[in-house]
C-alpha cells in the first residue's frame, strides 16, 4: 500500500477516475477524448494547486515519505559503477551509513550517505538510518581516502540525527561529529553535499561541510526536528506543524538565507512519485556544480569553503550607548 497524504487524496481520486475511464475507452472503443482531456486539465490544475502551496510541515512529511529514494537508490540512478567499502577500522561497520567509490562521467568519486530502510527488517539492519560513531568514522575514513586519491566527495544526506544511544555516547558520538566537521572543512578535494530528505542537526552537518550544499525541493534542514522543537516550546509534539513554520527549514527558506547554493526541483508530486525523474534531476545539478568547483585550485577551494561557513550568523555590534553600565 503506497502512502498517500491527506492533501493528495483529491488528486489521487481524480487520477484513478482518469485511469478507469481510459481503460473503459480502450475496452469499449468509445470516443471520450474530450472528457478525458477535460479531466486531465483538471488534474493538472489540481496538481499545481496542491504542490505549489505545500506548507513547511507538508514538505517535512514529503521528505519522510517511505517511498522516497534512499542513498543507494540515488547511487544506482546517478553513477555508472559503485563499489561499496565497509568499516571504520576501529570498531565496526555501521550499516546506517553507506559509502564507496563510484564513477561519474568516467571519473571516480567517493560517495557517502546515511541509508534508511524500506521495510522493518531492513530498518532494523540500518538502525532506521541513525548512525553510530563508527558510521561517522567510516565516513571520515572514506573522505580522507578520497583526498589521498584526489577524488571529489559527494554526500547524500538523509538523516534525522545521530543515534542517541548508550553505546553511541560511550564511543564518543559528540566527539566524532566534531571531528568530522573539522576535518571535512580542510579536505583538499571538491565536496558537494546534497540534502535529499532530512537534514537533522549535527548528524547531518557531520557530513554536510561542502563547497556546494544543495537541497532537494521537499527536504528539510535545521538544528532541531519540528517535533522536538514543539515539545520544547509547547510540551506537545503534535504541534510540530506550527514548529515547522517557525524553524524556516525548507529549501526555499535556506536558499534565501544563503545557507544552501541551489534547490533541486523535484518532479511534480515529489521524489517518491518518480524516482527516475528525480535521479536525472539530481545528476544534472550535481554535474553542473561539481564541474564548476573542479575548476577552482585546491588552496582556493579550501579557503572558499572556510569563508562560506565563516560568514554564517546574524548579530549586531552592541550600540555604544548601551555599553555604559
Amino acid at each position: 500500500m503506497p502512502t498517500i497524504f491527506e492533501w493528495e487524496k483529491p488528486l489521487v481520486e481524480l487520477e484513478e477516475k482518469i485511469n478507469e475511464l481510459r481503460t473503459f475507452v480502450y475496452e469499449q472503443g468509445i470516443d471520450f477524448r474530450d472528457e478525458l482531456n477535460d479531466l486531465e486539465r483538471k488534474a493538472d490544475k489540481l496538481r499545481k494547486e496542491i504542490y505549489e502551496r505545500l506548507t513547511p510541515w507538508q514538505r517535512v512529511r514529503m521528505a519522510r515519505h517511505p517511498d522516497r529514494p534512499t542513498a543507494l537508490d540515488y547511487i544506482k540512478m546517478i553513477f555508472d559503477d559503485f563499489y561499496e567499502l565497509h568499516g571504520d577500522r576501529r570498531f565496526g561497520d555501521d550499516q546506517a551509513i553507506v559509502g564507496g567509490i563510484a564513477i561519474l562521467d568516467g571519473e571516480p568519486v567517493t560517495v557517502i550517505g546515511p541509508q534508511k530502510g524500506r521495510d522493518t527488517k531492513e530498518n532494523i539492519i540500518r538502525n532506521f538510518g541513525l548512525p553510530h560513531p563508527e558510521g561517522y568514522r567510516k565516513a571520515l575514513r572514506l573522505m580522507k581516502q578520497a583526498e589521498q586519491f584526489h577524488r571529489p566527495i559527494i554526500t547524500l544526506i538523509d538523516v534525522v540525527g545521530a543515534y542517541p544511544g548508550i553505546e553511541a555516547e560511550q564511543r564518543g558520538q559528540g566527539l566524532v561529529i566534531a571531528e568530522c566537521i573539522e576535518q571535512m572543512s580542510f579536505l583538499e578535494v571538491p565536496i558537494v553535499c546534497i540534502i535529499t530528505g532530512e537534514g537533522g542537526s549535527g548528524g547531518a552537518l557531520a557530513i554536510g561541510v561542502g563547497d556546494r550544499v544543495l537541497m532537494l525541493e521537499h527536504s528539510w534542514y535545521s538544528v532541531i526536528s519540528p517535533e522536538m522543537c514543539a515539545t520544547i516550546l509547547w510540551k506537545d509534539a503534535n504541534k510540530a506543524p506550527e514548529a515547522a513554520e517557525l524553524l524556516k527549514l525548507t529549501s526555499t527558506d535556506l536558499l534565501k538565507f544563503g545557507i544552501i547554493d541551489d534547490v533541486i526541483t523535484e518532479p511534480i508530486g515529489g521524489a517518491h512519485r518518480d524516482h527516475e525523474g528525480t535521479g536525472r534531476q539530481v545528476k544534472a545539478f550535481l554535474r553542473r556544480h561539481l564541474s564548476e568547483i573542479r575548476k577552482i585550485s585546491v588552496d582556493e577551494l579550501v579557503n572558499q569553503r572556510l569563508e562560506r561557513f565563516r560568514k554564517f550568523g546574524e548579530f549586531q555590534a552592541k550600540k555604544l550607548a548601551e555599553t555604559v553600565d
Partner: peptide, 13 residues
Amino acid sequence: GIFSLMQMAKTAQ
C-alpha cells in the same frame, strides 16, 4: 534554527 547549527561548523573550523 539553521544559523545555530552553522555555528558548529564555524567554531570547529
